[in-house]
């Protein structure tokens, strides 16, 4: 099935749901592997928030579609090419700096997004967005403070954080390509302030990679979905 029309309300919901689910899946990979117990718990909370948003959006998208598809059908039954998430969120965790920079970039995108959508005249979406906006504010605080700590910590942490910014920068123009210009301004303001305080530099290389919103992904997503969807595909039509 080719990617759906991006203007379609359902596919917009799916795109945001996919973002949140894929990132939750990535963050879940940290559990029992974080640098300190408190970080383990925090990453768990953030992952659960993203998962909660994804579930609400999938359910809502399924209701709008009206074909009787529930959250699991949409999350675990779609092929890679139908996934509309941003390339950023499917990137591997890497080290903790990579994970926190990825989180910062994403949180700074979701901040104006949920604020905007919480004023939507579609009441279900507005409700989901209002809750997500609160959670995102906390995620942004968490990721910002860690990027600052790592950027302005030790020599090693600075190097790792700078590497992370360098490696993930090429996935950032996609964050706001389909949305309003005001999102971009807000994103640049939020990220710029954090990178400044963290003493980190924006790469000069202008190269940008996009495609996630249209179903063209990096090679990482296939593996992520293979693992995530394995049970549903091995044991179809069963209740769990």
């Amino acid at each position: 099935m080719p990617p759906q029309d991006p203007d379609d309300r359902v596919s917009a919901l799916l795109a945001h749901a996919d973002d949140n689910l894929v990132l939750a899946q990535r963050l879940g990979e940290w559990i029992a592997s974080a640098p300190e117990l408190e970080i383990d718990i925090a990453l768990g909370n953030i992952a659960l928030d993203h998962l909660g948003v994804a579930r609400a959006l999938y359910t809502h998208a399924g209701d709008l579609q009206g074909e009787g598809r529930g959250e699991d059908d949409l999350a675990l039954g779609r092929e890679e090419r139908d996934y509309l998430n941003l390339l950023l969120v499917e990137q591997p965790n890497g080290d903790f700096a990579r994970t926190m920079v990825r989180q910062l970039f994403f949180d700074a995108y979701q901040t104006p997004l949920w604020e905007d959508l919480s004023a939507s005249d579609a009441p279900v979406l507005a409700g989901i967005a209002a809750k997500a906006a609160k959670e995102t504010a906390y995620h942004l605080q968490y990721s910002s403070s860690w990027v600052i700590r790592l950027g302005d910590g030790t020599e090693e942490s600075h190097r790792r954080a700078q590497d992370a910014v360098g490696a993930l920068w090429r996935f950032t123009s996609e964050l706001t390509e389909d949305d309003r210009a005001s999102y971009r301004d807000e994103w640049e303001r939020l990220v710029g302030a954090v990178l400044g305080e963290a003493k980190l530099e924006v790469p000069e290389d202008p190269y940008q990679r996009t495609g996630g919103r249209h179903g063209y992904h990096t090679e990482h997503l296939g593996y992520l979905l293979a693992e995530m969807q394995w049970m549903q595909r091995s044991y179809p039509e069963m209740k769990w």
Binding site: L21, Q25, G28, E29, I31, A32, D40, I41, G44, N45, A47, L48, L51, G52, A54, R55, Y58, E71, D72, A75, L76, E227, M228, W230, M231, Q232, Y235, M238, W240
Partner: peptide
């Protein structure tokens, strides 16, 4: 089993439990 939980509901429960 977090990454392979069979449904999103089970994934959320398991994540919360391990956390």
């Amino acid at each position: 089993w977090i990454s392979r939980a069979p449904t999103l509901h089970r994934k959320a429960i398991l994540m919360a439990k391990v956390q």
